[in-house]
Amino acid sequence: MNESVDDIRTIVTSTLRALLPAPVELSDNTNIMRDLGLDSVSVMDFVMETEECLDISVPLDRISEVETIGDLVTMLHDLKGGD
């Protein structure tokens, strides 16, 4: 199955909401570490949840390039082979 950008955004935001202690407004511009207070390991753990949903492996150097939710959605879509 080839998920669309919107599908991937839904996976990312619902995974994040499940992880965060309190509800927060999430947009493509949300900075994952600065705005959500996640440390480097929490970010990797969170990406691991999305890998499971999408059946892909995300290399660590690609994770370190990600700052915002928008970056992450684009990167996951790219790895999933989307166009």
Partner: peptide, 11 residues
């Protein structure tokens, strides 16, 4: 060690 090298790294 994985960052010092040039391989693709996943966990």
């Amino acid at each position: 060690g994985s960052r010092l090298g040039h391989a693709q790294v996943t966990r």
